[in-house]
Computed example of a mutant assay.
Amino acid sequence: MNNLEIYSTVATAAAAIISLLISFYLIQKDRIKLDIDLSPNAEWISLLLLDDGRSIYNENGLIKTNIRIINSSNHDVSYFDLRIIDDDLNELVFYNKLQHNIFNNLQQTNVIAGALPNGATATLNIPESDFGILKSKSVTSIDIVISSESKIKSLFIMFKITNKKRLFKKIKFGYINSPYDSFSGSSLVEESNKPNYKEVYDSMHN
């Protein structure tokens, strides 16, 4: 092999390596990057406050936790199948905006805050439904509120995104067999901190 042939072979190999590195860089650049920041402890709230001055009360009690999703990638991402599971693997219904309709006389109203047992209020961002959009380069804050029909030790929150799961990614909890990428986390519930909701209800009507 003469010097020209050697140079040509080396140049071809170098071009192939550069092309591979560029492809890898573009894949990494376009990869969806989500970070989940879930409140480690849920908290009890007394009422859900509506923007028309009314409130929603539940005699069994209301539990709230917050999940913040950081989308540091260059693309908007759709999430779906947002689900809440308790420690006994029961699926829980969470408050969302689609529940406000003409049948319960809550149409065109929004939950804007929650009243806390100590008398303070906290702004709430109730989800539209079990799906939504995670904007590029942004933080999406979602407040999960469920009623306490029975004793709950923890809330397990999970959702999928519309991107396919990486081939060898192992999922231990949540949507194990789904072809879509999923995220999950848990939030502890302290039953001992639960206020006396009968007293709360009585104070509202005195």
Rank of each mutant, 00 (worst) to 15 (best):
F103H: 10
I63T: 08
Y79T: 06
F131P: 00
I142E: 01
P117C: 08
P127L: 00
S46V: 02
R83Q: 14
S154T: 10
L98V: 12
G61D: 00
Y79H: 10
I85P: 09
R54G: 10
K137D: 09
Q107Y: 14
P117T: 05
G119L: 04
S154Q: 14
I133H: 07
I102E: 15
F103C: 02
D81M: 08
F159A: 05
Y95E: 12
G114L: 02
L50G: 00
S129H: 12
L155W: 09
D88S: 14
N60D: 15
N60C: 08
K153P: 00
E59M: 08
L62H: 06
L89T: 15
V111T: 11
I70G: 01
K64V: 04
L124S: 03
E59A: 12
N104H: 11
V111Q: 08
D52T: 12
I70A: 07
F131V: 05
F159S: 04
S129W: 13
I63H: 05
T65R: 00
L47Q: 09
S147M: 12
G119W: 01
V77P: 03
N58C: 09
F156K: 15
H75P: 00
D52W: 03
L106P: 06
N104K: 12
S78M: 14
S129F: 11
I56E: 00
V93D: 13
Q107A: 14
V111L: 03
N96E: 13
V145F: 05
A120R: 12
